[in-house]
Design a protein around this nucleic acid. Structure first.
Length: 500
RNA sequence: GCUCCCUUCGUCUAGUGGCCUAGGACACUGGCCUCUCACGCCGGUAACAGGGGUUCGAGUCCCCUAGGGAGCGCCA
C-alpha cells in the first residue's frame, strides 16, 4: 500500500506542485476564472459529461480564464487506464483543450491525508470503527420508521484507536444550515440536521470523493464549479468541509442532466452515448458540440453557433434548470448542415478512411474532393456519404430491386441503347457536355429527360438516387459507364425473357 | 420513506405582468423547384401539467396537487 502510494507520487511530479498550497486562502487571483472538468474514469466520455465539459470550457474561455482536467480515480476498483484514455481521446476529438492536467487524484493521496490530519487535529473529524453490520442495522431501523437513513454519530464521543481498522468521518455541524447559491438553480437551502457525518477516509486509508473534491478545487484555485445536478445534494456537505478548513466556497453551477429520447435517463440502450461512437457514425465534432450546447442553453432563436461565437455569447446563467432529452434527428440535421458548409477538402480527408472500410481506395479513381462536392448536400453523416459514393469507385453488386423494377423495364432499353451510343463517342467527357448528350438523346426520342436519365442513373449507380446525371456520369467515367449500361441492358433482356 | 430539484408544441427552446389569438428550430406534413435524391423556398398540424389565489390584466408572481428526477454508499 505504502509502496504503491510512493510510486504514484513519483509519477505525480506535475500534480505535486499543488500539494504545497496552503489552505484557507486562494492561491490564485480570485478574479481569474478557473473551471474544471472532473470525470471519474469508470467508462467512456458520454454526451452528458461532454456537455458539462463544454460548459466549463466555454465559461473559462468566455472570461479569459483557465480550464483544468482532473481525473477522479480514487475508486481503484472501478477506475481503469482504458477509461482514462477514452476520456482524453474524446476531449481531444471535441477540441476541448485544457490548460492544466490531466491531474490524477491517486497522485495526491499524501495531500488528502495531510488535510484529514488537520481536521482530526482540530476535532472536526474522528475515527469510527462501527461495523457494517451495525451500520446496516441502524439503516434498516431508520427506513422502517420512515426516517432518512443516516449515520447516528455513535463514534463521535468515543476514543477509537488508530491501530485497529477504522474509517474517519467528518463532524458535520449539528446546528444551522447551508445555502447553496447556485448560478443555474438560484439559492437552495439545506438544514444541517439533514446531513450526517460522512466518511472522508476509508478503512484502506484512501480518501473519499467529498473530501478530495473539496481539497482539489481549493488547491487548484477553482473559482467556478460547473457539474451535473446529481451533485447538487452533495454540495452542502462540501461547503461544510470547506468551512471547517476555513475556506470560502467557489461559485457553483449545477447543470441538468441529459435524458434519452424517451425521457428516461440516458443509457446504452438509447444507442450511442459515448462521444467516440458519434465519431464512428460519421458525426462532425462541431455538430456534436453545437447540438450539445443547445441542450439546455439558447441565445434567442439562433441554432447555429461556432465555437468562437459561443466563446462570446455563452453565459452559464442562461442554462435551463430542467433536464432535456437527446434528439438524434436534430443532431443529424446539424451534422448535415456542417457537412454542407465545410471545406470539401476537409470532408474528403475525413471521408477517405470510411471508404477504406468499404474496401475502396479513393486514390484509384476521380478526385475525392470532386465526389464530396457532388454529395455534400446529400448526406447526414460521413458514413452515409461513403455509402452513397461507393458507386463512383467500384461496380455495385446488384441493382436495388425497387429502382430496377421501376426504371429497368423493356421500354427503357431503347433509351439506354441510344444514350450508350452517344456516350461512346462524346469527345469531351465533361459534366456540361454530358448534360447536352443526355438532353439530346431525350429530344431525339421525343421524351422527357427523366425517361432517359432515370434508367441511365439506375444502370450506372444501381439506385434511383444520385447527384445530377451529368456529374454522376462524369465521376464514374466513360469506361465504367458503358460497362454498366451493357449490364443493365442484359438485365432488361433477361427480365423480358422471364416474362415471356 | 425523508431531503432537494424540475414541469411551454412529440423533441430542443423563446418568453422575466400587457408586444402572446404563445415565436423559432428539429421531426412530421401540403406545395414549388426538378433528370432522381438531396438542398432551397412557401404553407400546415402541434404546447403554457391540473387547481386555487394575487392583479384592471398571468405562460410570466404566490400556494396546493399531480407527474418526473436526484441524493440519502468505506461510488464519483
Amino acid at each position: 500500500m505504502g509502496q504503491i502510494r510512493s510510486e504514484l507520487c513519483i509519477q505525480a511530479a506535475s500534480a505535486l506542485e499543488y500539494a504545497g498550497f496552503s489552505l484557507g486562502h486562494r492561491p490564485h487571483n480570485p478574479m481569474t476564472v478557473k473551471t474544471r472538468f472532473a470525470p471519474s474514469p469508470t467508462g467512456y466520455l458520454h454526451v452528458g459529461g461532454a456537455r458539462t465539459a463544454l460548459f466549463s470550457w466555454l465559461h473559462a474561455r468566455r472570461h479569459g480564464g483557465k480550464f483544468v482536467l482532473r481525473i477522479e480515480d480514487t475508486d481503484r476498483e472501478r477506475s481503469t487506464d482504458e477509461s482514462v484514455n477514452a476520456i482524453l481521446e474524446g476531449m481531444t476529438w471535441l477540441g476541448l483543450e485544457y490548460d492544466e492536467g490531466p491531474i490524477y487524484q491517486t497522485h495526491r493521496f499524501e495531500r488528502y491525508n495531510t488535510v484529514i490530519g488537520e481536521l482530526m487535529a482540530k476535532g472536526l473529524a474522528y475515527r469510527c470503527d462501527c461495523s457494517r453490520e451495525r451500520l446496516d442495522g441502524i439503516r434498516e431501523e431508520q427506513m422502517a420508521r420512515k426516517a432518512k437513513p443516516r449515520y447516528d454519530g455513535h463514534c463521535r464521543g468515543r476514543e477509537v484507536g488508530s491501530d485497529a481498522p477504522h474509517v474517519i468521518r467528518f463532524r458535520n455541524p449539528d446546528e444551522g444550515g447551508v445555502v447553496v447559491d447556485d448560478r443555474v438553480r438560484g439559492k437552495v437551502a439545506y438544514d444541517n440536521a439533514e446531513l450526517d457525518d460522512l466518511i472522508i477516509r476509508r478503512t484502506d486509508g484512501s480518501p473519499t470523493y467529498n473530501l478530495t473534491v473539496v481539497v482539489d478545487d481549493l488547491d487548484m484555485g477553482i473559482t467556478d464549479v460547473i457539474r451535473g445536478d446529481d451533485h447538487l445534494n452533495n454540495t452542502p456537505r462540501q461547503i461544510n468541509i470547506l468551512r471547517a478548513l476555513g475556506a470560502e466556497p467557489p461559485r457553483y453551477a449545477h447543470v441538468p442532466m441529459i435524458l434519452g429520447d424517451d425521457g428516461s435517463r440516458l443509457s446504452k440502450r438509447h444507442g450511442a452515448v459515448s462521444v467516440m461512437q458519434y465519431r464512428e457514425q460519421g458525426i462532425l465534432p462541431e455538430a456534436l458540440l453545437n447540438y450539445l450546447v443547445r441542450l439546455g442553453w439558447s441565445y434567442g432563436d439562433q441554432e447555429i453557433f461556432s465555437l468562437d461565437e459561443l466563446t462570446q455569447l455563452f453565459d452559464i446563467k442562461d442554462v435551463n434548470k430542467a433536464a432535456s432529452s437527446f434528439n438524434t434527428d436534430k443532431l443529424l440535421w446539424l451534422n448535415q448542415h456542417y457537412i454542407k458548409e465545410d471545406d470539401p477538402k476537409r470532408i474528403a480527408r475525413l471521408l477517405s478512411p470510411l471508404l477504406g472500410d468499404l474496401d475502396i481506395d479513393p486514390t484509384q479513381g476521380p478526385d475525392l474532393v470532386e465526389v464530396v462536392k457532388a454529395q455534400q448536400e446529400r448526406a447526414k453523416t460521413l458514413v452515409e456519404m461513403a455509402e452513397i459514393s461507393a458507386f463512383v469507385y467500384k461496380d455495385f453488386d446488384e441493382f436495388e430491386p425497387k429502382a430496377a423494377k421501376k426504371h429497368l423495364r423493356p421500354v427503357a432499353a431503347e433509351a439506354l441503347q441510344q444514350v450508350r451510343e452517344a456516350l461512346a463517342i462524346v469527345s469531351d467527357w465533361s459534366p456540361a457536355a454530358l448534360h447536352d448528350t443526355v438532353e439530346r438523346v431525350a429530344e431525339l426520342m421525343d421524351v422527357k429527360m427523366g425517361k432517359v436519365a432515370q434508367p441511365l442513373r439506375v444502370a450506372v449507380v444501381g439506385r434511383a438516387a444520385s447527384p445530377g446525371i451529368d456529374v454522376t456520369l462524369y465521376l464514374v467515367g466513360r469506361e465504367a459507364c458503358l460497362r454498366r449500361i451493357d449490364r443493365a441492358l442484359e438485365y432488361i433482356a433477361a427480365r423480358a425473357g422471364d416474362q415471356v
